[in-house]
Design a protein around this nucleic acid. Structure first.
Lengths: 224, 224
DNA sequence: ATCGAATTGTAAAAGAGTTGTGAAATCTGA
DNA sequence: TCAGATTTCACAACTCTTTTACAATTCGAT
């Protein structure tokens, strides 16, 4: 769960934003002035900071500067009541990632938060299975040499199971239990059928598998 | 020359604003109630609308909703006598661009009008969903090749959710939670029904979707 | 080495489940 | 009450999964 720090001296706006964010599954921390904000930014270690430009004690601009100077890389979105005071160049210089002009729509705010989080987040949830083949768990996309390959749900589940258990001998029963669950009871041959399809889609030469190996009389083994 | 429609039941206030605006080089059109206002908004095609919240016949809130629902993207500034009745989030959800609390200074009003006009002009808040289709989050207007398309609230919400989560696999449950909220429990087929309508309205060929893709046994994925 | 029983590879058929969609039922706000 | 929006339903169309059948392979015992 991601935490967002909201720094604004307008309590009702803070609450509105907090409710909105919590409804969307974020955790929120609030601060009413720049000093509190700075403290919370360091203590609560939020994933993103929403900060008003005009703040008591320490202004939003100073807050950004100080955070950046202490090596805090948390993404920051600046809120501002006045369009004109938003010197975009300045904002970027002090290390803000985006800005929103008040009054703003909830959807706009959410969209910007998501965009910034996505940009700043650990760029990509990509996982390299083996030479040329990548699996993007978040997007549920599998690609070879950059080109997406279509997988059915069962194939996808089986592949990710192999990925999570590389280099181990996996019996058909283990595979059935882990991938198909305890509530369905397919034939063990089902596993074979799916492995065949994984090989056809992913092995450079499906006739001579180098990654999805058979372990005779036991099951299979995945070698990255 | 830019035209501004002023909707307020207080005739002397209307006149004051009109004189002020005309002195600044705007053309003005007036309306005394919500019904007239709606008519004028459609007939006079103003560049901006100033509207009081409390109006005879049709309230300011309804007026906004109706305009946005009929695909009118004209920027709207809401006037209100009471600060408290200004639920800012609500205002933005119904598609207002800014608000001014009565009594207001002429300088403030002019500044806000200019700011809104500037924003709505060049730096529009339009977001390109995909080829030919634009979504204006701020005004809740969706258009294809410049022509507005009517969307019901549920359709609009679903679309913006897709827009905010491009290229990700979204399960029906995720969609229900995010778009419908935790308090209603519609059937998962409801999602399908709405996706169908999005496709009918937005896909070049609804029979062969290129943007609203099905992820079998999981949900959907939006591809810009 | 060779045989044969067991195991695995594989295409294709059969089966199960999912999605698309129009229409009906239900809900909701004016 | 009515109109529009939303949700549910029913069934067709479709995709995916599982099974099946048979060929190919493995491997231990002759």
């Amino acid at each position: 769960m991601q935490t967002i720090l909201v720094i604004d001296d307008d309590e009702s706006l803070r609450d509105t934003i907090a409710i909105l964010l919590e409804r969307e599954g974020f955790r929120t921390v609030q601060a009413a002035d720049g000093k509190q904000g700075l403290d919370q930014a360091l203590i609560a270690k939020p994933d993103l900071i929403l900060v008003d430009l005009r703040l008591p004690l320490i202004s939003g601009v100073d807050l950004c500067k100080r955070l950046r100077n202490s090596g805090v890389a948390t993404p920051i979105i600046v809120l501002s009541a006045v369009c004109d005071e938003l010197d975009k160049v300045l904002l970027l210089e002090i290390g803000a990632d985006d800005y929103v002009v008040k009054p703003f729509g909830t959807r706009e705010l959410l969209a910007r938060i998501r965009a910034v989080l996505r940009r700043s987040g650990v760029e990509s949830h990509k996982l390299t299975a083996f030479a040329g083949v990548e699996v993007d768990l978040e997007r549920r996309v599998i690609s070879r040499n950059g080109e997406a390959i279509k997988f059915t749900p069962a194939e996808y589940n089986l592949l990710t199971y192999f990925l999570q258990n590389p280099d181990r001998v996996l019996s058909r029963d283990m595979i059935l239990n882990s991938v198909w669950g305890y509530e369905s009871f397919p034939n063990t041959r089902t596993v074979d059928a799916h492995v065949v399809r994984l090989r056809q889609k992913l092995e450079p030469d499906p006739n001579c598998p180098r990654h999805f190996l058979t372990v005779h009389r036991v099951g299979y083994r995945f070698l990255p």
